[in-house]
Design a protein around this nucleic acid. Sequence first.
DNA 1: CTGGGGTGGGCAAACGTTTTCTCGGGACCG
DNA 2: CGGTCCCGAGAAAACGTTTGCCCACCCCAG
Lengths: 366, 366
Amino acid sequence: MTARKPVRYNPSRPSPDDALIGPPRTPNTVGPTITDVAREAGVSAATVSRILNGRHHGDPAIRDRVQATALALGYVPHGGARSLVTRRNGALGVLLPNLFGEFWVEFLRGIDDTSRERGIHLLATSSHADPVQLRNAAAAMRGRVDGYLIVAPGNRADDVITMLAQTAPVVVVGIDARASGAPSLMIDNAAGARAVAEHAMSRGFRHLAMITGPETNGDAIARRDAFRAAIACAGDDVTLTEFVGDFSQDSGWSAAHTMLAHPRRFEFCFACNDSMAIGAMSAFRDAGIRVPESLAIAGFDDVPMARYLTPALTTVHVPIEELGRRAMSMLISSVVKGAPAKPTVQLITTTLIVRGSTVMESKGPS
Amino acid sequence: MTARKPVRYNPSRPSPDDALIGPPRTPNTVGPTITDVAREAGVSAATVSRILNGRHHGDPAIRDRVQATALALGYVPHGGARSLVTRRNGALGVLLPNLFGEFWVEFLRGIDDTSRERGIHLLATSSHADPVQLRNAAAAMRGRVDGYLIVAPGNRADDVITMLAQTAPVVVVGIDARASGAPSLMIDNAAGARAVAEHAMSRGFRHLAMITGPETNGDAIARRDAFRAAIACAGDDVTLTEFVGDFSQDSGWSAAHTMLAHPRRFEFCFACNDSMAIGAMSAFRDAGIRVPESLAIAGFDDVPMARYLTPALTTVHVPIEELGRRAMSMLISSVVKGAPAKPTVQLITTTLIVRGSTVMESKGPS
DNA sequence: CTGGGGTGGGCAAACGTTTTCTCGGGACCG
DNA sequence: CGGTCCCGAGAAAACGTTTGCCCACCCCAG
């Protein structure tokens, strides 16, 4: 008896031994085939195929009979066989980074809605922080998807994207992938970060802190750099001190504690995403620091939760769901056209939403 | 020219015209085939197949040569062709309800991690509130997945589940599907709700409010009923007033406003999930009501955010990620065994986590 | 009435893979 | 030295679907 090899993580192999589980060779568990329908309806399989795909132009009586038979038998075409001959899968691969926080639900909703409207399946997987994992995940999807939506890849993933983009349509969210030949959607992080900086200045804050995001995340870097640059233009009496985070609530909490131990008394804190802002606010609360009176704080993303915090969070609104929606639309039209889209960069505009965490206010959810 | 039929939503059809998009008949865009590898390595396709699947027991030199060739060519087996002959897809279907709130990120992480560990793909889709949508989504996945994970189906989805469970392994999360022949994982909502009730009593609260969840959600119903029952046992001097919500933050906010307009002065509010609790807390804050001094509030789920709220939210801890993990494990082992698992019900235990929204406290994230 | 054109539908090939069967060769034992 | 057995690898069938090609039939016109 030759037992199956245990599935192991081995990036050097072209990953052929993935994913096939279950008892070998269980005959026909899959349901009726097109041949069954054809026999039952007294026509050929070709006719059934043409009718069910709307390519039939003949006798309406036959059409109705075949459709009725298919319905009665509960026939559903076998996707694998179909994609084998048509060379199209009707599915798209979605490669996400680590799943943490409300941001991703919003984003997933956008892409799921769009793909569902178009009758397209989604093969999704997450946790592809490093290029090797990304390559493996993409390889595993090969032959099952018609295109890839790559979200927030690390900044060393260029060659993987290049390789992928040569074989299938690819849309990248979060970094500029023009060099890899793939169109990109990017949040206008710079504008958002600048808006936060200007807001802070206009309120007269002089000693600013920033909680940065993970080094591997393009959005995090862009926000940090733009904020730095904006502050640098401000004048010598304005200081900026940076604390490292990783986009998680916990890291925001820790960064806030480090911040409190710092000799300088900060007046304003910019967290590079909302999750960290939430963690930091919690730490400030525990330390007895009043927000915004003693320390104002702003985030980035405007997750739904932001307006419900106490105080409500000033943040940069990102149309997260629309971002997903547009990325998916772009990918779909690229697949439909059969050619990769022009490797352009679309910028998703952001808007500063001022709430109670930077100014005193009293009213409900805006 | 016979244009393709536009994709339309038509539940009465066996949904054959789904999901195939793109230019018809683009020849070999998919990459090298097993035949290419075989020719290049000077062996037969059968040998390549055996080697790459670890079923080869012959000459190691051949094995190395074939593996090297496959790697060099970047060969990845065509999933469709493979599943056609093996009758296994290496993919599982995940059917989710509407995607809102942090709960689902946690859950998705659990199932994604588990499936990725096993090298299994995930076909996911959401928004199958009503049985028809559920049936359609499941039908579209047929022939592409080896089993289904159905999460929080509406309470009228029994026959759909029954049908599905006859053709493939199914695991249901959120309702008792024993009658449909599928094993279920359920949160111990009753114990959690009782714990909240007891906590409220022990703090001496007499006038209680509850914000209920959607009628179509099994968890929501179970929490409501258990809370009702626990309060009913309490004695005549304890009152319970119910306000309707739908698990969204907005609905919690609205329910809280209705609550404030109620003549009775409530001392304790139980929101049937954390999202609504967050919305309600925000409304209370806006109304100038101090939590917990004037009104205590508790939620359910213990999403990561809960501990970071101001005040931190007393809630019933649900091991969400583990729930996803266990559901996926159960489904996988059912698929591996090739037989549906025993239609049992596994109860996921819950724990009350007392934080600042019901008692005065001062320390950081617990 | 007959021939031709148009059309409806069947036949068969092809997609890429796994797996059974079969064949050939080498080694070991008698 | 010869026969038998075992092992390794190739040939080929099969999976379920789509689609190009061709045949046959029907209808209409000459």
